[in-house]
């Protein structure tokens, strides 16, 4: 773009700027004597894209998702920018400088999380759990939480505590909480792995409908390859090499 004087063009430029731009990202773990090394040679995710990290358990997809979610620090990165809206943030430098509250602010404003087992707050009701991400941002109570609860089939459960819900209902509350503050990026780690296949299908379809309605960027970690094709997600390139002699597993993601 030669000129950014025109506001329309500026807008266009920002919309088209990638949400994630990653190069030479790496993270190593040592667990029970065996090593695990994750690397991402190159990764670009654009606004509104729906991306899947596909692989079996232990392939490093959760580790990558944690780093993309600003919840885990990379060991090294040639480049790692996060640009959900406005100006891009240089994530490795924030980690290096120990600016955990700035990372927290980025997470709070721009990312919605669906954890594998819900991660609901046990002492808050269904409605309060969904509304939590909004309250932490001091957003007004404009009926978003109630509308989401209804859309997620939780209309009658608003005053219940998570302990009184089934696993599938809890996962739907978690989805509601991830969407309530309308974040531009939504990350989900095996959101339906703990549900039976039929419920999993319904919940996943509902989840994608809601994400699409928001126009948010979605990154899902899943072991279910069939689901990826069925839902039209873009699967990242992935390979896994085990080196039994060195006791090392090398995983790569790219795309």
């Amino acid at each position: 773009m030669p000129s950014i004087r025109c506001p329309w063009k500026r807008c266009l430029k920002e919309v088209s700027a990638p949400v994630y731009q990653v190069a030479e990202l790496s993270k190593a773990r040592v667990q029970a004597g065996s090593g695990f090394a994750l690397s991402v040679p190159e990764l670009t995710i654009r606004p509104g894209e729906r991306v899947a990290l596909v692989g079996d358990s232990g392939c490093g997809k959760s580790t990558l998702l944690d780093m993309l979610g600003l919840a885990s620090s990379p060991d090294g990165a040639g480049r790692f920018t996060f640009c959900p809206r406005g100006a891009p943030s240089d994530i490795p430098s924030l980690w290096r400088d120990g600016r955990s509250n700035d990372l927290g602010d980025l997470r709070k404003h721009h990312i919605g999380y669906v954890l594998q087992t819900g991660g609901l707050i046990p002492y808050l009701t269904v409605r309060q759990n969904i509304d939590l991400t909004r309250r932490l941002l001091d957003l007004p109570d404009d009926g978003t939480a109630d509308a989401l609860a209804e859309r997620l089939g939780l209309a009658g459960h608003g005053a219940k505590l998570p302990a009184a819900l089934s696993v599938g209902e809890r996962q739907r509350v978690a989805i509601g909480r991830a969407l309530a503050h309308r974040p531009p990026v939504i990350l989900a780690d095996e959101p339906t792995a703990s549900l039976d296949p039929e419920t999993a299908k319904t919940v996943m379809a509902l989840f994608l409908d809601l994400v699409e309605a928001e126009g948010a960027t979605l990154i899902v970690a899943t072991h279910d390859r069939a689901q990826v094709g069925r839902l039209g997600l873009r699967a990242l390139g992935h390979d896994l090499a085990r080196d039994p002699a060195a006791g090392l597993t090398r995983a790569r993601f790219w795309g």
Binding site: N101, G104, K108, I121, L132
Partner: peptide
């Protein structure tokens, strides 16, 4: 774990 979730959701130190 509960504190970790609040941390993830952006509650500062």
């Amino acid at each position: 774990r509960d504190l970790g979730i609040l941390r993830l959701l952006g509650v500062p130190t």
